[in-house]
């Protein structure tokens, strides 16, 4: 992609075959562009290691993408409002840890305690950001650190019972039915449908976009903006806790750094998926593809057999490149 100066960019728009050309087509169908990119990555893997891409491999990719996809659901909501949630990784870790250490109380109670942490931190974020008007970045960075600290104290004081991941959570995180369908897809798919439908077809979805696009306009139209923001952050905390449960099911080991590596990808999946970091534009369909692209990218880098630092450099560079390409595409 060429990088002409600002005015030149406007000219080049007409140089590429006008409204009928390939670039304008992709610009109108950004989801399709993302799917093509995903296919290109998958093809890259097949070229690097012929015979890798099998139905089982695809099934595994979906299995591993689910926690990121669910984290991304919450992150999509808050980023559509123009905010961000940096506490999602700590909440996911904490929720998983609470689940495992309270398994003796019964599976249902343990799950409720885990999800309760998500709702609690989400509520705290929501009150700080929506009511007290703290910057989302600062607020969620703070609550994330607090959550981490609380979990460390908890782990030192409360090790009465052996951490144990309930079996149905293990099945949810790692199991498959009919040979190849990951079980966590039965959680992720309804969330995806609810997110995509809800953002387009409910009043709350409309307001999530509207608040991100112009807060003042919402107030003038009689919307009490704080209510919308509060609910978005609570939902984000809830999704983070849920993602933590799926994640601990797949690793079957609750430790206090479980979801750390998911923080940056949860934001990157949303951005790659085309949601504006300034709010007001985007959607969850893009985030799903973004999560899949990142998952496939990780497995591609694993195949390359490069040292870990090199992988990290490549991973970061590719995310930046994708974000830049997307920004140019959507202008």
């Amino acid at each position: 992609m060429s990088l002409p100066a600002k005015t030149g960019g406007q000219r080049s728009r007409f140089g590429l075959g006008g409204p009928g050309g390939i670039l304008p087509f992709l610009r109108r169908n950004t989801i399709l562009a993302l799917i093509l990119l995903l296919i290109a990555f998958v093809a890259g893997i097949e070229v690097a290691r012929p015979g890798t891409v099998t139905p089982i491999w695809i099934s595994n990719a979906l299995l591993f993408a689910a926690p990121l996809g669910i984290l991304g659901a919450g992150q999509t909501l808050v980023m559509l409002t123009g905010g961000i949630d940096l506490s999602v990784a700590s909440v996911a870790t904490g929720s998983a840890y609470l689940l495992a250490t309270n398994a003796s109380l019964g599976s249902v109670a343990a799950v409720l305690i885990g999800l309760g942490l998500g709702l609690g931190v989400g509520l705290l974020n929501g009150v700080g950001i929506a009511v007290l008007r703290v910057q989302p970045l600062v607020m969620t960075l703070g609550t994330g650190l607090m959550t981490e600290g609380v979990m460390v104290v908890y782990s030192q004081k409360m090790l009465a019972s052996e951490p144990r991941v309930p079996e149905f959570i293990q099945a949810l995180g790692a199991g498959k039915v009919l040979g190849a369908v990951p079980l966590d897809l039965f959680l992720w798919a309804p969330i995806a449908i609810a997110m995509i439908w809800g953002l387009r077809r409910t009043g709350f979805g409309r307001l999530t976009y509207a608040v991100g696009d112009n807060r003042q306009a919402c107030e003038l139209a009689g919307v009490r903006v704080w209510q919308v923001l509060l609910v978005d952050y609570v939902l984000c905390g809830f999704f983070a806790a849920l993602a933590g449960l799926v994640l601990v099911g797949s690793t079957n080991a609750a430790d206090l750094s479980l979801a750390d590596v998911y923080l940056l990808p949860s934001v990157a999946a949303v951005i790659i998926g085309g949601t504006s970091i300034l709010g007001g534009r985007g959607g969850y369909a893009g985030t799903i593809i973004g999560a899949l692209i990142l998952t496939v990218l990780t497995s591609l880098l694993t195949l390359l057999d490069a040292p870990e630092p090199i992988k990290q450099i490549l991973y970061g560079a590719i995310i930046l490149l994708l974000a830049a390409a997307y920004a140019r595409l959507t202008d």
């Binding site: 409309r206 307001l207 509207a210 919402c218 009689g222 007001g280 534009r281």
Partner: peptide, 22 residues
């Protein structure tokens, strides 16, 4: 400009007050 959602459609802009309350 204070009253409008620049990135959203005419329809969503017109319908904004209709979805204002919980």
């Amino acid at each position: 400009i204070q009253a409008l959602l620049p990135q959203r459609s005419i329809r969503e802009n017109v319908a904004l007050p209709m979805v204002r309350g919980i």
